[in-house]
């Protein structure tokens, strides 16, 4: 069984998934960050593949991507860095990135390498579900990699039902009509949206992402889903004082304490 499916089978609440940008803050931090995240007790890790034009991302992830590319990261190098990642963690690992670098790498080649590296899933925001089904689904199945779908406050109920019926692993529920970025609070309309989706009784587990930054927003998200994803706030915390292990354990501690 794929590690993502296993996770959602054994754990139903308060799942914490952390996103970080590969190659940031330093080119060779990729494995160290994964090691510390594993030790700090997170449930899943999303490894961001930097892209020159990340249109769904807010300023923090834009900047981390720009810096990582400036540091010299590339998809080829990420695969090299992750070659022995399974010696340090057994957590589900997901690649999150935009379509063009994957397309240029060669889609099947990419999934083949994912499988060799023991990556469990992908989140590719600008790969529409329809294109995925038409051109790529068979490759994902062949290599047992799960492609995670997004739903947003703009997604009509009928489409949510459709996505739920074909989804594997979990649904990535975007909390707000916004690009990625941390907020301190969810407003009433977001809470209404969380409740609405929760009441649909979908078959697929859900993680809420975008705008989750602290214990309060994490707990609010968890009240209406299986857990939450934190990206921008985590990346920002890497710039704080202290060694990499110190900053990571402090940040996760604050969310989980």
């Amino acid at each position: 069984m794929n590690r993502i499916e296993k996770l959602f089978k054994t754990k139903k609440k308060n799942i914490l998934s952390i996103y970080f940008t590969a190659g940031y803050p330093e080119l060779n931090h990729t494995l160290s960050i994964i090691r510390e995240l594993d030790k700090s007790g997170v449930d899943m890790i999303e490894i961001g593949i930097p892209f020159s034009d990340p249109v769904a991302d807010g300023p923090v992830i834009q900047r981390s991507s720009e810096k990582a590319l400036h540091n010299g990261i590339s998809l080829t190098l990420i695969f090299e860095q992750l070659a022995r990642v399974r010696e340090i963690t057994d957590l589900p690992l997901i690649f999150m990135g935009y379509l063009n670098p994957v397309f240029k790498f060669g889609f099947e080649n990419f999934l083949h390498k994912c499988s060799e590296t023991d990556i469990d899933g992908t989140i590719i925001p600008d790969l529409p579900v329809e294109e995925y089904r038409k051109s790529y689904e068979s490759f994902f199945e062949k290599y047992n990699i799960l492609n995670i779908f997004l739903i947003s406050p703009q997604t009509p109920n009928e489409r949510i039902g459709y996505l739920d019926s074909i989804a594997k692993g979990f649904l990535y529920m975007v909390s707000t009509t916004s690009t990625t970025g941390a907020t301190n609070n969810f407003d009433d309309s977001q809470m209404t949206y969380f409740k609405k989706i929760n009441n649909l009784n979908l078959k697929t587990p859900r993680l809420i992402g975008f705008g989750i930054s602290n214990k309060v927003t994490f707990n609010q998200a968890c009240d209406y889903s299986n857990g939450a994803i934190i990206g921008s706030a985590f990346i920002r915390s890497l710039d704080e004082d202290g060694t990499l292990p110190e900053t990571i354990h402090r940040f996760i501690g604050q969310i989980r304490d």
Partner: peptide
Amino acid sequence: AFVPEMLRQ
């Protein structure tokens, strides 16, 4: 139309 779900609608 390669747009993220947030723009799809």
